[in-house]
Design a protein around this nucleic acid. Structure first.
Lengths: 184, 184
DNA sequence: CTATAATCGGGATGGTCGTCCCGTTTGAGG
DNA sequence: CCTCAAACGGGACGACCATCCCGATTATAG
């Protein structure tokens, strides 16, 4: 691979990561190219479709989240692991509008793009939830899709990363709601 | 107004209501026209922009929700009123994909479209929340935006109206989370 | 330094959609 | 029945965007 090609590829990736995080997935590819100082042809040669570009950026972020989840999994108390993962996932995603939209399923099919074991967020969430429920730390009737939707709720709190206190409050409320009756 | 004009207007309104509810706000105006059996010109004469058409449909639905809220407001117990409104809002909206997208702010600026007192959902929600908090039925630190986001979470549970049990479970969880510590 | 193949830039293409316009049709009053 | 303004249909237009393509450029091996 030629040196300038590699450089351009890196540059596009970096710019795309920032722009999608700040302004969401609907930013035109041509705009990414413009800000990276390259032509649209250069972008679409390295990443034939917009989805390819998104995959390269988003799956990287998701892998980091999954890593943290796996680390929490081996933490001893399944309840603590589950609830801490809720907070981690919300915090990691809140500052990234593109990632939020990806989770919401807007313009990017995460399930289809995730093929490896290292990017299966739903899988790891399912494991954490099941363990926490076995330990009696989460209401037994709650399903993975419920938890995902509640996380989406926390992310819907507002665009951007401004209000950390509000996010914390949301997580507190949701966590309290998920706990079975006795344990408060 | 000529009889055929009135008839066409009604027909477009009816079809648009169904289609947007079933398939969301991104359905092309031309498709509405096609299914109503009229030309695109007819639609855009009665409703110059797509937003005009949406307003005519969505604000009507919102008014109905607000009516129910006002009815609950005069119900005596502010806590009961608030929690029942949560359920009402989710139930009313869940079956209507267009309404869900409108609340999510996708392609339709609800705040801007709402001008009358009869369509201010956020206003009535604020009143219900404040009263419930004064009565000690909701955590005092929760804000209106938090509640809205949690409702969005319930709506994000899945597309369509299929799983009533899941929606009920979501409302239970969210309600439990919103209650202050003592009252379970 | 030169040749050449990889790479680049950005215009062309095709598709979608909202809105506007105009030639044609039709409802309804006289 | 006859007229004509109101209403209709659907094609034209313009905006936006992803993707493809090709003539110009440039990195790198020899």
């Amino acid at each position: 691979m030629r040196a300038d090609a590699r450089r351009n590829r890196e540059r596009v990736l970096e710019v795309a990561c920032d722009v999608f995080a700040a302004e969401g997935l609907s930013v035109p590819v041509a705009e990414i190219a413009r800000r990276a100082g390259v032509g649209t042809g250069t972008v679409s040669r390295h990443f034939p479709t917009k989805e390819d570009l998104l995959r390269a950026i988003i799956l990287d972020r998701i892998e980091r989240i999954v890593d943290q989840a796996r680390a929490l999994e081996s933490l001893g108390d399944p309840g603590t692991a589950f609830y801490r993962f809720l907070a981690v996932m919300v915090e990691e995603t809140a500052a990234n509008r593109g990632l939020t939209e990806a989770f919401a399923g807007a313009g990017f099919d995460m399930e289809a793009a995730s093929s490896g074991a290292s990017d299966d967020v739903m899988g790891v969430l399912r494991d954490l939830l099941a363990a926490a429920q076995r330990a009696g730390a989460v209401r037994p009737d709650v399903e993975v899709a419920d938890v995902k939707a509640l996380i989406m709720g926390c992310l819907a709190r507002e665009r951007g990363d401004g209000d950390t206190a509000a996010r914390l409050r949301m997580i507190t409320v949701v966590s309290a709601g998920l706990r079975p009756d006795p344990a408060r």
